[in-house]
Amino acid sequence: MAEDLLIIASSPHIRAKDTVQSIMYSVAIALLPAVAAGVYFFGWYALAIVLVSIGSAVAAEVVWQKLRGQALRVSDGSAIVTGLLLAMNLPPTAPLWMAALGSAVAIIIGKQVYGGLGANPFNPALVGRVFLTASFPMLMTKWALPAGYDAIASATPLAVMKAGGTVPLTNLFFGSIPGCLGETSALALLIGGIYLLIKGHIDYRIVTGIFGSVVVLSLLMGLDPVAQLLAGGLMLGALFMATDMVTSPVTPKGRWVFGIGVGLLVMLIRNGAGMPEGVSFSILLMNAAVPLINRTTRPRIYGR
């Protein structure tokens, strides 16, 4: 382009700073407190799971794009986020090969076969997790007690509560409980979630819808609402998975519907089904409903 020629373009002539890349890296940064908590409670092996999972997700994306002759776009950071989220959803005892396999499935079956970034209907990390749960049910439910606890294996708080027991709320809040690598510390997840809410990268309607419906249903069912919020994968799911932009509705009303739907399904599965926990399935089911939600909740156009 000649230096003295003017640039001609259609307005607007200025653009906001946020890019796909900056959003993805913010999400990754927001997950770091929870990663740190996972390492603190479950040891350095947790970090190995995280790194292998991210590495496998990135590698799977590169290989796919090379094979398909597409432009490489791993630098947008979405594969890193998927790998990271999958690791957070694995038990801290998971073998490394399983983390690698789950991540590859998440990227390829969960995202690339639909057309890549922005085209997938289901949260890729959850596709990976559900694949692993279905394929290796024993390995996926082998919980470890956090460091300092003198036991080999234990039931998760939700299983304990379902059997009629109780778990101290402070343990649930700080995360010294058995569970997935990244889901146990509500505090760490909240720090990251609040950061993303402030940055506008996650939608308050989805988060409020989930938490609100869980609290209301807990009260109606006579359960402790705080324990229901803090236990299991709800914090991780509500703040980081249900709020995935690609797989949640685009309409304001739709995001309320989506959030409330996830909350209802979580409480239904936790208390009415055979499984102790159902955040993953609840989110995936609502992901499937997104096209319908979008179509039926279009905003009213000004003046119509």
Binding site: G116, L117, G118, D203, M245, V250, R300, Y302
Partner: peptide, 19 residues
């Protein structure tokens, strides 16, 4: 441009409430 990631910012900010 990058692919649409359905973040819905355009929907949230449209002053005519379009999509």
């Amino acid at each position: 441009p990058d692919p649409c990631i359905r973040c819905a910012r355009c929907v949230d900010h449209c002053p005519m409430h379009l999509m």
